[in-house]
Amino acid sequence: MPDSASNRKPRTGVAALTQAGDGDFSVIDAIGGPRGVVESMLPGFVFVVMFVITSDLRSTVLVSAVLAAVQVVARLIQRQSVMGALSGLVSVAICLVWAWHSHEARNYYMFGFITNAAYIVLLGISLIARVPGLGLVVEFIRSLPTDHFRDWFHGWMNDKPLKQAYMAITALWVGVFALRLLVQVPLYLSDRVAWLGTARLLMGIPFWALAIWVSYLIVATPMHRHRELERAAQRQSADSGDLTAERG
């Protein structure tokens, strides 16, 4: 069963769309809040600025790694959730190791290329199969189908407006990931680290926020309608159960 709006905690990323139907959606929350934005962008910003200024890959990697670790430690000291910062640390660590091992600063961005390409493939396959990938993610997080998987799956897949909305936002995100590669890969191939880093920053959180906002505009109305239908069905089921109990 879906959680009530009052019991929900703010979610980040695509998971925030699970709250769109009840009017609890916030773009700021979806991108992790002001602190989350800073934590996401700062290591990459420091990496490109330091490398452009010093051309010293060793010191650039070291400072970026220390900065990412400090962000996690700061949250631990303040007894705050570390999941976002920790996942960011892992991602930054992979990028830094790749750059260090290859001795090329531009390879800091290789992991991002791979993940974007993987998302394009997975979401593209889901569009071809007519089972929108983002619909699967949002509905799974929203209602956690531990039982009656078939009923859960057909419940939203058979809601034509909702399915169409999920198809649309899945296609939108394929476009976002593809545009990132279209702009950034040529900069990588020409070894323009400064421009590549700038493009990566601009097409990171800002693009993420815009894509989430547009996704919200697309899914909010059909999701709200779908939830109203779910609640009506639950009330009808409860009323039927009460009536049966009275007759018994």
Rank of each mutant, 00 (worst) to 15 (best):
S237W: 12
L189S: 04
S215A: 13
W208K: 12
R192N: 06
E228F: 12
R235D: 13
I212P: 00
L196G: 00
A232T: 14
R231Q: 10
M223G: 09
L202R: 00
I212K: 00
S215Q: 11
A209F: 01
A232L: 12
M223H: 11
R192W: 03
L187I: 03
H226E: 12
V219L: 09
E228S: 15
M223R: 05
S237F: 11
R225T: 13
R200F: 08
I218Q: 07
H224P: 04
H226D: 08
P206C: 08
T198M: 01
E228D: 15
M223I: 04
W213L: 13
R225H: 14
I205W: 10
R225Q: 15
A211E: 01
W208R: 09
R231C: 08
V183F: 07
H226G: 06
S215D: 10
A209K: 03
Q234F: 10
P222V: 04
Q234A: 08
V185S: 04
H226T: 09
I205V: 14
S237G: 11
R231W: 04
P186M: 05
V214H: 09
A232R: 15
Q184P: 02
L217P: 06
R227S: 09
H226I: 06
G204M: 01
L189P: 05
H226A: 11
V219F: 07
A209R: 01
S215W: 07
P222L: 06
F207P: 04
A220N: 09
P222F: 02
F207M: 08
R225A: 13
H224C: 13
V193A: 02
P222N: 09
T198V: 00
V185R: 04
S190C: 09
E230L: 15
P206I: 05
R200T: 12
A211R: 02
L187Q: 02
M203Y: 02
H226F: 13
Q234V: 11
P222I: 04
L201M: 07
V183Q: 03
I205Q: 10
G197Y: 00
L210P: 05
E228C: 14
M223C: 08
R227I: 09
Q184K: 08
H226V: 09
R227A: 09
R235M: 11
A233S: 14
R227P: 06
I218F: 10
T221C: 11
T221I: 08
I205M: 14
A233Q: 14
R227N: 11
L196H: 01
L202N: 03
H224S: 15
I212D: 00
L217R: 13
S190G: 08
H226S: 11
R235V: 12
R235P: 07
P206S: 07
Q184M: 11
L201N: 02
P222G: 07
W195T: 01
D191S: 08
